[in-house]
């Protein structure tokens, strides 16, 4: 455990040092983040101004979902894109070799090696939006802390799906970055899942790409209407997907041929 922490400190220390070589990036990403958020809030506002309740969710409640979505975007920008997006690269250029040669868990290395500070504005503004909407709805700090549990599940779920997709590049080396597909599907997480028509959509977003568990569930928990079974299911799903991602990666390595020199 101590070695893991030491490694993470070194990994992230060097990543930030490398990113800081390009100083203006931070301002740019803060600007992009605010711009994106303002646009999203405005878009959402268009519905509510016309008196439409998305899936029966009130204005502040829908904002909470959007807030969690922004937080997840932040996590994926700081860790997931920075690391999992590079797996394709590693396979293409054959530098996965170096990872596999190290006496360290390869999945751990591939998933944590980099940290990009450019997702931090999303994390801050997303959390800010959740808290602001929460205060309006009279949510306590304890509720927020409790809501972090299903959120952690969301992060693990998202991570595992993404990692599994990235792993497929070991077979389909030349196919463009498959993880982009996931990114676009996740856009659905901006809205409460009940806003989508019942039937096929809701089924897909619950079971195929579990968007429902990613943002709607943490918001429901925050509002005190999270059902325990659903929370348990969300966490179970996260755990199952995580285990599956590890098994899948180990399986895929049998087919790794390593870019030839």
């Amino acid at each position: 455990m101590r070695r893991t922490l030491r490694l993470l400190r070194l990994f992230w220390g060097t990543s930030i040092a490398a990113e800081m070589e390009y100083r203006s990036n931070f301002l740019m990403s803060a600007f992009t983040s605010i711009g994106g958020l303002v646009g999203a809030v405005f878009g959402l506002h268009l519905f509510y101004r016309g008196g439409i309740l998305l899936g029966g969710w009130r204005w502040e409640e829908a904002l909470m979902v959007l807030g969690w979505f922004t937080v997840l975007t932040g996590v994926s920008r700081t860790l997931l894109t920075a690391n999992l997006g590079r797996i394709v690269d590693h396979v293409q250029r054959g530098t996965l070799d170096f990872v596999l040669l190290k006496p360290v868990d390869a999945q751990f290395w591939l998933s944590t090696r980099r940290l990009s500070p450019w997702g931090i504005p999303d994390l801050v503004f997303g959390l800010g939006l959740v808290l602001w909407a929460g205060v309006k709805r009279g949510v306590s700090l304890v509720d927020v802390l409790v809501a972090l549990v299903p959120l952690a599940g969301s992060v693990v779920t998202l991570y595992s799906l993404w990692f599994i997709l990235a792993t497929t590049t070991i077979w389909y080396v030349k196919i463009y970055n498959v993880t982009e597909v996931l990114n676009s599907l996740l856009e659905a997480g901006r809205f409460p899942v009940t806003a989508f028509p019942a039937g096929l959509y809701r089924f897909v977003f619950t079971f195929v790409v579990p968007v429902a568990f990613l943002t709607t569930l943490p918001a429901e928990v925050l509002l005190g209407r999270g059902r325990l079974t659903l929370i348990a299911f969300g966490l179970g799903l996260a755990l199952a997907l995580f285990v599956a991602s590890r098994a899948f990666f180990r399986f895929a390595l049998r087919y790794y041929t390593s870019a030839s020199s």
Binding site: A18, G94, F98
Partner: peptide, 11 residues
């Protein structure tokens, strides 16, 4: 490997 590098480029 002569054609691959593990060193961090910017550091």
């Amino acid at each position: 490997m002569g054609n691959k590098q593990q060193l961090l480029w910017d550091l």
